[in-house]
Computed example of a mutant assay.
Amino acid sequence: MPFQKNDVILFQGDSITDCGRNYDDTSSLGTGYALMAAARLGQKYPEKNLTFINRGISGNRAVDLQERWDKDCLELKPTWVSIYIGINDTWRYYDSGQETTAAEFEASYRDLIERTKKSLEAKLVLVEPFVLPVPEDRKGWRQDLDPKIHVVRELAREYGALLVPLDGLFAAASMKAEPAFWAGDGVHPSPAGHALIAEAWMTTVGAIS
């Protein structure tokens, strides 16, 4: 049983985490994997009185998380911190020429982890970014994204964080149904894609087997 009574679970990230949440409602979880995981875990562990918070913001990169980490993470005093960031660090390079090197991405990500460890006794869950080959040009993104996926894996190892290995899971899922079934633009998950993320997240933290 991974959770303690009154645990506070924070989901942080970009549009995949945000997923249409209402910014005026601090308890809004959006309609994606954060809501799905919260619903399932609340139903499974009602006696634990778990609190779920979503602070994903569409379009964010790792540097954007750095800027708002005090307010949108540390001050919330979560006991679990789930970080899912990286695809926009690649996307901005291809749509507007704003490059984030793997070294820059690692420095930003490491800063988030260090600040969290310094301020909180929180368990860390790192969710690696993924991309699927739809449309065709997404295949070219691999060159930029793969080193960032490796950064997330290395940081998880180094800091003893839990790792949600999404890139491989989505690749495997796209053998069962075409990639667009899981993410129409190769990035933003369908409802089925969000369910895949939620299940992978819960499996990683040990809430389901």
Results as ranks from 00 to 15, higher is better:
D18T: 02
H150K: 15
F105R: 14
G56S: 14
P165M: 00
Q143W: 05
V205M: 01
D95N: 11
N88D: 08
D185H: 03
A192L: 04
L112A: 13
E121H: 09
W182Q: 07
S174D: 07
G186I: 00
A107I: 03
R61L: 02
A200R: 05
A39P: 03
K71C: 06
V81E: 05
V63K: 10
S108I: 03
M175F: 03
E99W: 02
K148G: 06
C73W: 01
N49F: 07
Y33C: 01
L35Q: 10
A173Y: 04
E106C: 13
V151P: 15
Q43L: 10
A172G: 04
E154A: 15
A62S: 15
F181E: 04
G97S: 10
I197A: 08
M175D: 09
K139Y: 05
N60S: 13
A195L: 03
P133Q: 05
Y109M: 08
A156P: 12
D64L: 03
D89Q: 08
A37M: 00
Y93K: 15
A103G: 12
G97F: 09
M202N: 11
V164P: 08
D111S: 14
Q143G: 07
L65Q: 11
G140N: 15
L112N: 13
D18I: 00
L29S: 14
V131P: 04
W201F: 15
F11A: 12
C73I: 03
Y84A: 14
K44M: 14
Q66R: 07
R157F: 02
V81L: 12
V187P: 10
Y33P: 10
A102N: 12
V131H: 02
D18E: 12
D18S: 07
A207G: 09
N88A: 05
T204M: 06
I85V: 14
M36Y: 15
E99G: 04
A200M: 04
D111F: 04
E136V: 00
V164E: 01
K77H: 15
S27G: 07
I87C: 10
D64H: 14
V152C: 13
A62L: 10
E158H: 02
R153V: 00
M1K: 02
R138I: 00
G20P: 09
K118V: 07
L76F: 05
E99F: 06
I16H: 09
C73M: 07
A172Y: 05
S15M: 03
L155I: 08
P78C: 01
R142E: 14
R92Y: 13
K5E: 13
A172T: 05
R55L: 14
A102D: 08
P191W: 07
Q143D: 12
E75I: 02
G20R: 07
P46H: 02
L65A: 08
L29F: 11
E178Q: 12
K5L: 13
G140E: 14
D72T: 06
I53K: 01
E67I: 02
S209I: 01
K148D: 02
G186W: 01
A39W: 01
D137I: 10
A173G: 08
L10M: 06
A200G: 05
A198F: 00
G42K: 15
P78M: 00
